[in-house]
Amino acid sequence: MWKFLHKLASPPHFYDLSAKMIPWFAIIGGIFIMYGTIAGLFFAPPDYQQGDAFRIIYVHVPAAYLSMMAYMIMAISAGIGLIWRIKLSHAVAAAAAPLGAWFTFLALATGMIWGRPMWGTWWEWGDPRMMSELIMLFLYFGYMALRAAIDDTVKADKASAVLAIVGAVNIPIIHFSVEWWNSLHQGSTLLRDGGPAMPAEMLYPLLAMIFGFTLIFGALLLGRVRTEVLFRERRSRWVRNLVCAQEGRNE
């Protein structure tokens, strides 16, 4: 087991293996998303309260879930990199941040588009989830800005890892404080809670979308980690051999 993990963490091996994994992730994820989109848009019955607008959750929920997932991946792999000094782990953290920021943006944007017909406003200050997502976006920006400000990769890895961990400790506190803040607002009754549990025709497409998006996210993440590995190992022999072999094939 340890031998396998050790081998996986070696950059050239990871570079080869991930190249083989990415198409599988993308194809299977794509199939699930295609099923989820078609079933969600055309076959799921309209919601009894929200009508057809509820179909936005088929993209909103996966995006929101992945925006949090990406932060967890980032913080955990940053912690692993800081404690056990695994270089690949830092590369994962660096790659997860921009993807997380994109998915947070997507969650916010689709949430706003949903809010317009449902609440009658693009931006509802009283909704704790939207506030949490917005603060999460700021946390991603801070992480990426710190990384960009430090030229030395090793130093950038460690410093941003400390920030990611401090942020991870703070996220539950932020969420709690935003909920408390909202609980004092009166009359912001949301339609989300209450109502019967989701029927299966609504639920299965959603589960398929979540699973498909996770796989696509995995493919995107692996792709970015490969770029990070290539950049970090740019002076090593295996990268030189790899690039030279590619050149030879092209000419």
Partner: peptide, 27 residues
Amino acid sequence: ALTVGLHRGTALLSLLILPLAMPVLIF
């Protein structure tokens, strides 16, 4: 401590700390 010795540290410091400080501000 994270931004000491970096160029344009002040703006970066606010970007790092403000989101983390939001619970304190809210409460």
